[in-house]
Write a protein that binds this DNA or RNA. Structure first.
Length: 580
DNA sequence: GCCGTTTTCGGCCCGACTGTTTTCAGTCG
């Protein structure tokens, strides 16, 4: 059983216990355990079978035993018992905005309501107000919430790249204002999460009202509420924006608070309480002295708590607080640590720019090398690059490289299709002429896990393949990853010295942060690339770097932090095996 | 149910907002 599946069972059990009226801390304990299981970088099943599940923070004796029961029977008996007591739809009701376990339980007890549909009808027929604590307003808001999300499937999350485009525009506009002293994006956009629910902006100003007024005047917003301390707005395409403005003395406290994540802040405060410190957006209250320490910078917030500064990308309660206390945070990958980009396209396949145009843009970005990796013969959309066309393409790339001088290297590469049986659609003789080969899957996504894994491992083991492009094929919020046994994939990549890509296309970010962290733990070396289809999207490598940072990846884990003459020998299986 | 520089019991993050209340429980981020 995968970690995610085990975690889902404990999340469900937490929901059911909560409906059953268990004390809140017990419910929280189950949720914490579920999160620890989900985030664990190794197989929890293996850990549990070795009797070591309690090594996970938040898993004690009781939950460790329940994991073993779950692995034996495939179900948790406690959950089964509670599912006889409550209709399955009742948990769905707790997800409706404004509803939680207490209110869901109340409508079930009083009116026998156990599904969203039954709740909707009761609200329409004005029967909800018969329940103590519910009134006409409650009926209205239930109907509004159900109308906004009829089947409970709306996730309402927006891709990071869209959110950052809007958020950065707002920040830039506010920064221009004379009253503005500091302004930053906060929230999940600052943490570079895959998707965001809204945009949080934090500012410090000499004249707070004036800055709020400037925010109200931005043409891209419909402002829904405003005061001296901030404003709330919605962009014309429906993205909610929150602005908070404080005096500069507490800017650090507010930025830290609103950057989150929720679990990071909760854990931060829990640990602080043990030292007699209470953290909020207004400062750090010291029990002993009775004073509140206001922090102008985030650095100060963390320092007051005995921690080193935690980069926003790590603030997910995945071990960063313990590492920050021990001063052992990773030396995270940075965009400027990358010397080259090893995945991009030109008009030879489905790109928008010439070889010359891409090379010039890469140089402009300060890179030392760029691999041109157009799609191979059987790609099936855009232009196909036949073997003869590839030979001419290689010659052209070499000629352009010659013309560029010694401080920049243009590499002749290809993004070669992996066919359903794991073979490649150029023959070895042609592949040998290339400097750099990425193998990617672009078709036949629906094979079984066994077939898909065999296919991938065969590509990884091909001696002329340097890297696997977007290894799981997922598209954020749109397409699930291929069915793959990633433990096998990572083992094969580590053994053969084939690199796995962290693709920077903001729709892909593949490997994901979770999988990239597992990959480096398994000894895999990564490449972080833009997969640019035009000069402007070379900047997408920033999303790849953000993904890698969220995976605790350091420069040493990434092949293209090296010069090309250092990287080149790394990718030969014999020498890699010797290094390992 | 978990956990320990207040260790094996007694706590468990912090503050804002909302709607239904007459002092606050429940929900949210």
């Amino acid at each position: 059983m995968r970690n995610a599946d085990i975690a889902a069972h404990f999340s469900e059990l937490a929901d059911l216990y909560e409906l059953d009226g268990a004390i809140v801390h017990r419910v929280v304990a189950y949720r914490n355990a579920a999160a620890a299981i989900r985030e664990a970088p190794r197989s929890v099943e293996e850990l549990a079978r070795a009797g070591r599940a309690t090594e996970l923070a938040g898993v004690g004796k009781t939950i460790a035993e329940k994991i073993e029961t779950l692995l034996e029977r495939g179900r948790l008996p406690q959950a089964e018992r509670l599912l006889e007591k409550f209709p399955a739809g009742l948990v769905e009701i707790t997800r409706i905005p404004g509803f939680g376990p207490k209110r869901a339980r109340k409508v079930f007890d009083e009116l026998g309501i156990g599904t969203r549909e039954e709740l909707r009808r009761a609200a329409e027929e004005q029967r909800l107000r018969e329940v103590p604590g519910f009134g006409a307003r409650a009926e209205e808001s239930v109907l509004a919430a159900l109308a906004a999300d009829p089947d409970g499937s709306a996730r309402g999350r927006v891709l990071l790249s869209r959110v950052r485009a809007i958020g950065e525009e707002i920040v830039a506009a506010l920064r221009e204002h004379p009253a503005c002293q500091r302004v930053e994006l906060a929230g999940s956009a600052r943490r570079m999460a895959e998707t965001c629910k809204d945009v949080d902006v934090v500012a410090a100003a000499t004249d707070r009202a004036a800055l709020v007024e400037a925010f109200r005047a931005l043409a891209l917003l419909e402002v829904t509420s405003a005061s001296e301390s901030g404003a709330r707005a919605v962009t014309h395409n429906g993205l909610p924006i929150d602005l908070r403005v404080v005096a500069p003395e507490t800017f650090g406290n507010l930025l830290q608070h609103l950057t989150g994540s929720g679990p990071h802040n909760e854990a931060l405060r829990t640990q602080a309480v043990r030292r007699g410190l209470h953290v909020s957006e207004y400062g750090v209250l010291d029990d002993e002295r009775g004073t509140t320490h206001a922090c102008a910078t985030e650095d100060e917030v963390y320092r007051v708590l005995g921690l080193v500064y935690v980069p926003p990308e790590l603030r997910e309660n995945r071990g960063e607080l313990e590492a920050a206390r021990a001063r052992e945070l990773p030396d995270l990958l940075r965009v400027d640590s990358l010397r080259g980009d090893l995945h991009c396209h030109t008009i030879a396949s489905d790109g928008r720019a010439s070889v010359e145009g891409m090379a010039a843009a890469a140089r402009e970005r300060g890179l030392d090398y760029l691999a041109i990796t157009d799609h191979s013969a059987s790609h099936g959309f855009g232009k196909d690059v036949s073997p003869d066309a590839l030979r001419r393409h290689i010659e052209h790339i070499r000629a352009v490289d010659e013309s560029l001088g010694d401080d920049f290297r243009l590499l002749a590469g290809s993004e070669v299709n992996v066919l359903p049986d794991g073979s490649l659609d150029y023959d070895d003789e042609l592949l040998t002429e290339l400097d750099w080969v990425i193998a990617s899957l672009h078709s036949s996504f629906r094979l079984s896990e066994q077939e898909m894994t065999d296919r991938m491992v065969r590509a990884i083991e091909h001696p002329l393949v340097d890297a696997i492009g977007h290894p799981t094929g997922r598209l954020i919020e749109r397409r699930d990853p291929y069915a793959l046994d990633l433990d096998h994939v990572f083992e094969a990549a580590a053994r053969s010295g084939t690199f796995l890509e962290v693709n920077g296309n903001p729709n892909r970010r593949d490997l994901s942060e979770r999988n990239a962290r597992r990959a480096i733990a398994a000894g895999v070396t990564l490449v972080v690339d833009s997969d640019a289809h035009g000069p402007e999207t070379l900047a997408n490598v920033g999303y790849g770097v953000a993904t890698a940072r969220r995976a605790w990846v350091e420069g040493r884990h990434v092949a293209n932090t090296r010069r090309w003459d250092e990287l080149d020998p790394l990718r030969r299986p014999s020498s890699t095996a010797a290094d390992a």
